[in-house]
């Protein structure tokens, strides 16, 4: 299978995402100004500070030419993973419900933390067990997930709350300790922590992030059978 990894001006985690994806399949960078997804089976919207995060994080990247193709791709059921700034971009594009606000601690914060898998049946977490803990780093200033109460309740019922911060790990003030959410169809996932930075025990102290990439590969290859 092939991953397409977007690169905006100001992206900074696209190379790690490319490396993580290449541990389970092929991967290629896709420039923000191009519309061609180059035959990718899954898209990664990486972390960083796209377009300087001017106005609001993700607000301008959401209108990049490549995003028009990503929105069409997602509407057709294609798998799209947004990490950190990528999560913010997907929320701004309304591919995911809710929004990300400034951390309640008002600081850019970097921490290795524990996530809990709340939905292990989905396209992005099928290699995980329900309740399994993943050790993955987070680093951001705007990671406080917010959606109104009605939306959150509907997301909970539909299994869209996929990952949450384990007890004591929610430094950004996300409602319900939510760390990662999917759309209703389950083919778009956004999360603030960085699975692409946890793919090698030697340099990351954990390779738990690979499970997300491996899940995507299994989903794509399963769909082909």
């Amino acid at each position: 299978m092939k991953f397409g990894v977007l690169r905006f001006p100001g992206s900074c985690d696209e190379v790690d995402a490319l490396d993580a994806a290449r541990r389970v399949g092929d991967a290629e960078l896709l420039w923000h100004g191009d519309r061609d997804l180059k035959g990718a089976d899954a898209i990664i919207v990486p972390g960083g500070f796209s377009y300087g995060d001017y106005l609001r994080a993700g607000a301008i990247a959401r209108f990049a030419p490549v995003m028009e193709s990503v929105i069409d791709f997602a509407s057709d059921g294609g798998l799209v993973l947004g990490i950190c700034n990528g999560f913010q971009v997907l929320c701004e594009a309304r591919l995911l419900p809710g929004a990300l606000l400034g951390n309640t601690n008002r600081r850019f914060t970097f921490r290795q933390l524990e996530l809990e898998v709340l939905n292990s049946g989905g396209a992005f977490t099928r290699t995980c067990a329900l309740g399994e803990r993943l050790s993955i780093p987070a680093k951001h200033a705007w990671g406080r997930y917010y959606a109104d109460a009605e939306t959150l309740a509907a997301m909970d019922r539909a299994g869209q709350l996929v990952l949450r911060y384990a007890e004591g790990e929610n430094f950004n003030g996300s409602l319900g300790d939510i760390a990662g959410v999917s759309n209703e169809q389950g083919n778009v996932l956004g999360l603030m922590p960085h699975p692409e930075h946890a793919v090698d025990e030697l340099i990351g102290g954990s390779a738990d992030g690979l499970k997300i990439f491996e899940s995507i590969r299994l989903t794509v290859e399963g769909a082909r059978v």
Binding site: L55, R56, F63, A99, L101, Y146, A147
Partner: peptide, 8 residues
Amino acid sequence: KLLANPLV
């Protein structure tokens, strides 16, 4: 569309 995010 751009200047504000009406959700928040």
